[in-house]
Amino acid sequence: MANRGETSVGPTLATQRATDSGPAPGPGDGGEAAQVIDRREMLDRLLKLGAASLVAALASGASLSPLVAAAKGSETKQKYRYGMVIDTRRCVGCRSCVAACKAENKTPPDVAYIVVLEEALGEHTDDRPLFMAKPCFHCDDPPCVPVCPVGATFKRAQDGIVVVDYDRCIGCRYCLVACPYQARYFDFGANYPAVEEETSYAEVPSPEYRQFRVREEGESPIGNARKCTFCLHLQDEEGRYDRAAGRWPACSKTCTGRAIIFGDFNDPESEVSRLLKTRNGIRLKEELGTEPNVYYLV
């Protein structure tokens, strides 16, 4: 198992809440690999890069952010490649993953970071159905990322997780349109009764991105695009998960049939890597060249 029991739990959970000055999801970045940059930093970097590279970037159609990243050094090297192998034959369709994800991330009624698709195989009602749990695939070449007009959504350099910067997102929903897997949801601001009636549950913040936001009318993430984060708020400072300590994506942790296997594809000894080597995994819509990091065993 990847990264088991290597770090303590305490300090990682007690990290700071994101403030207005630095809307960077995942303080687990430790700063060194942060791709989100604030306004002043942006200007600084632009000045340092000089107009020539800007022109070059425009001419080559390249985005500025990889350029900025390249200018900063070798941090584009991906340390972890987190992903999942989902065994459809082990899935019993109990939807615990959906409930666990909702409990973990406190998503509102219209948002579900993981859903379970269902299809009857065969013609009779008692024929074996096919269940397919579907989180975000955290593609290597995610179509949702380049379309964002403000760079609010990006693929983290250190671990490949595709995240949304709620404070930067303007809510245009272009990413929802561009995703071929319906992995993104718009937060329309609806609430479950417990929040609507302002019970004490409404005061419990969501640990998402370790920003610990309490749901408030008109405030992000309402009006933003939302998606699965592989529960990155459970990573330690090094960006590692720990299953034994319970710091593991909620859907995988709770899966009754052990159908959702999570891990690091960069680690050849991880369960996901071994499963891919020994079994035939398939990915959805390969023809689009998105290179998803979630494989299905059928």
Binding site: A62, L64, P146, V147, C148, V150, G151, I170, C172, R173
Partner: peptide, 19 residues
């Protein structure tokens, strides 16, 4: 979703985005 952030497109320019 957040129309008052329209100025983000000026300070966080993304040259890859048709939007």
């Amino acid at each position: 979703g957040h129309p008052f952030r329209f100025w983000h497109v000026l300070i966080y320019p993304s040259f890859e985005s048709p939007m």
